[in-house]
């Protein structure tokens, strides 16, 4: 009969297959090792990238806070500016003093 049939039924194939399977096991081991190493490396790189993305975001966040801070400073200054103080004093019932005499008192 043919070589192939003989191989199949007379053990030659079996031996070939057994060898193939052993080889496959070795290759599989290699694949697993390489995959593990690769994924470790990739995880590192990915973490790095993620962190730097965070850094950039935080820096943009700082800039945003800065803007808000300045806006608040301006608002505070506006509320304590002289014209506003005068307005608020008048609203509270104070009147601009016309004649002011200062008394000199001894220090307690």
């Amino acid at each position: 009969m043919s070589v192939t049939w003989q191989k199949r039924t007379h053990g030659v194939q079996r031996r070939q297959e057994a060898f193939d399977r052993a080889l496959a096991r070795v290759f599989l081991g290699g694949v697993i090792v390489i995959t593990l190493l690769g994924s470790l490396y990739l995880a590192l790189v990915a973490t790095n990238t993620r962190l730097s993305g965070k850094v950039w975001q935080m820096e943009e966040g700082i800039a945003e806070w800065q803007r808000q801070n300045e806006a608040l400073t301006v608002e505070i200054a506006r509320l304590s500016s002289i014209p506003v103080l005068i307005q608020r004093s008048i609203a509270l019932g104070y009147a601009p003093a016309a004649n002011v005499h200062y008394l000199v008192l001894p220090e307690p």
Partner: peptide, 16 residues
């Protein structure tokens, strides 16, 4: 957005 190597290279926070 700057790539990681760029972010590492310089700080981008503006100095008032």
């Amino acid at each position: 957005e700057p790539l990681p190597e760029e972010v590492a290279r310089r700080s981008v926070t503006p100095v008032p």
